[in-house]
């Protein structure tokens, strides 16, 4: 296989596989937060800000995959 083709395949695989886990995780976070908000609407403002923080932390594994994909594509 050409080295360029291998790079493109590797970058695509890195971000594609890396995005699966965080996608599921963020879905769980959003679903559970909505559930809690529906049960107790008074705390929804507080929950929303906490949800955003939790999602951003959960997202970080996808971001690592993205950084790796960028490094494969542009840095090497």
């Amino acid at each position: 296989m050409e080295i360029e083709a291998a790079k493109l395949l590797a970058a695509g695989l890195a971000i594609g596989l890396g995005a699966i886990g965080p996608g599921i995780g963020e879905g769980i976070i959003a679903g559970r937060t909505l559930e809690a908000m529906g049960r107790n609407p008074e705390v929804s403002d507080d929950l929303f800000s906490k949800m955003i923080v939790a999602m951003a932390i959960c997202e970080s594994t996808a971001i690592y995959a993205l950084v790796v994909a960028f490094l494969i594509l542009f840095a090497f």
Partner: peptide, 16 residues
């Protein structure tokens, strides 16, 4: 690594 890559990755990805 996680602190720096998180910030860098998000901003860089947004611009890209």
């Amino acid at each position: 690594v996680s602190l720096s890559a998180r910030l860098f990755g998000n901003i860089f990805a947004g611009e890209l």
